[in-house]
C-alpha cells in the first residue's frame, strides 16, 4: 500500500479520482431529480467532438502533443452543446429525449469526422472514450481540481435554487426564479463534470459515475440532502477502490469503477429490500383487537 501511495502517478490518479467521484454525483442528483439521467451521456458524446476539435486546432497550430487542446476543446464544446440543448428543450421545439438522441449521434459522428480531418484516426479517440488515468499529468490534475472545485462550489452554493427548479419547474417560474438561467447553469455544470471525468472513466462511462451512485444512495436515504451527500461519498469511494484494484490487476480503471458502482447498487437494493420486508410474525396494529383468528391446520 505504501508503494502504491508513493507512486507519483497513483498520487495524481487518486486525487483526480476522488475529485471526479465526489463532484459527479452532486450534479447527477439534480439530473435524476429532473428525470434527465441520460443527459451526461449525451454531453459525453458531444464532448468527443470537442476533443477532436481541440486536436484539430492543436495539429493546425503545430502543438506537441497534438491533443494538448483536447481538454479545453471538450470543455468548450460540451458546455455550448449542453446549454444549447437546454435552450432548445426549454423553448419546446423538441422533447428532452429527442434532444439527447441528437447529442448522441451528432457527437460521435462529429468526433470521428473531425479527428480524420486533423490527420488522426478513430483509435486516437479510444483513450477519451474509455478513460486513460495512467496518462494523467500534473497539469491534468490541476485542471481537474479547478473544474471539480467550480462544479462543487456552484452546485452546492446554488443547491436550494437548483433543487427548486429540478423539483418543480412550474412552481419555480411562478416564484419569479430565473429558471432559464438556473437550468443553463445546471447544464453547464453537467458539461464541466463530464469534461472533468473524461480522463478517469472515459466519455462513454462518465454518466455512470454521475448517476449510479445517486441510484444507490436513494435506495437508503430519505431526503434530497442526504441522497446527494451519500452519493458523493459513494462516488469518491468506488473511484478510489476501483483505481487501487487496477494498481494490482491490469484492468481498465473506468470500467472497474463503473462495475463496482453497479455491484454496490445491486447489493444495496437487495439488502434494503430484505430489511424492509415486513415480518409476518409482527402485529402491524398492536393497539387494535384482532378481528380475524388464524387457526393453523394440523
Amino acid at each position: 500500500m505504501i508503494e502504491l501511495l508513493s507512486s507519483p502517478l497513483m498520487q495524481r490518479a487518486l486525487i483526480a479520482a476522488v475529485l471526479v467521484g465526489a463532484a459527479g454525483p452532486v450534479i447527477g442528483t439534480f439530473l435524476v431529480q429532473r428525470r434527465l439521467a441520460l443527459l451526461g451521456d449525451g454531453i459525453g458524446h458531444i464532448a468527443l467532438t470537442g476533443v477532436a476539435a481541440g486536436w484539430l486546432v492543436g495539429a493546425v497550430v503545430g502543438l506537441t502533443p497534438p491533443d494538448a487542446l483536447a481538454l479545453p476543446g471538450a470543455m468548450v464544446v460540451a458546455v455550448l452543446g449542453a446549454v444549447g440543448i437546454e435552450w432548445v428543450r426549454a423553448k419546446g421545439r423538441i422533447t428532452g429525449d429527442v434532444a439527447m438522441a441528437i447529442l448522441f449521434y451528432g457527437g460521435i459522428a462529429g468526433g470521428v469526422l473531425i479527428i480524420k480531418i486533423a490527420g488522426g484516426t478513430s483509435a486516437n479517440l479510444m483513450s477519451y472514450l474509455f478513460g486513460s488515468i495512467a496518462t494523467v499529468s500534473t497539469n491534468d490534475v490541476v485542471w481537474t481540481a479547478v473544474l471539480a472545485g467550480v462544479v462543487l462550489a456552484v452546485g452546492l452554493g446554488l443547491r436550494g435554487a437548483l433543487f427548486a427548479v429540478s423539483h418543480d419547474e412550474e412552481f419555480a417560474r411562478a416564484s419569479g426564479l430565473p429558471v432559464g438561467f438556473l437550468t443553463s447553469i445546471l447544464a453547464a455544470l453537467a458539461a464541466l463534470t463530464v469534461t472533468v471525468a473524461m480522463r478517469v472513466v472515459g466519455l462513454l462511462l462518465v454518466s455512470a459515475l454521475m448517476i449510479v451512485p445517486v441510484a444507490t444512495a436513494q435506495v437508503v436515504a430519505r431526503s434530497f440532502t442526504r441522497t446527494m451527500a451519500l452519493a458523493s461519498a459513494i462516488g469518491a469511494g468506488v473511484s478510489v477502490v476501483g483505481l487501487v484494484i487496477t494498481y494490482w490487476y491490469d484492468l481498465p480503471p473506468g470500467a472497474v469503477i463503473v462495475v463496482l458502482a453497479i455491484v454496490l447498487y445491486g447489493v444495496t437494493t437487495v439488502v434494503q429490500h430484505r430489511r424492509r420486508r415486513p415480518d409476518p410474525t409482527i402485529d402491524p396494529h398492536p393497539d387494535l383487537a384482532d378481528d380475524v383468528r388464524v387457526v393453523q391446520e394440523t
Binding site: 431529480q33 433543487f163 427548486a164 418543480d168 445517486v214 436513494q218 430519505r222
Partner: peptide
C-alpha cells in the same frame, strides 16, 4: 405571491422530505 399548481409533482426519483419541499417555497425572484 404564493402558488399551488394543479398537478402533484411531488413524486420524483430522489427522495425528498416534506420539509425540503416547503423550504423551497421561500425562494423567489
Amino acid at each position: 405571491v404564493g402558488y399551488v399548481p394543479q398537478r402533484v409533482p411531488a413524486v420524483s426519483g430522489v427522495p425528498t422530505t416534506a420539509c425540503e419541499v416547503v423550504r423551497a417555497g421561500l425562494l423567489s425572484g
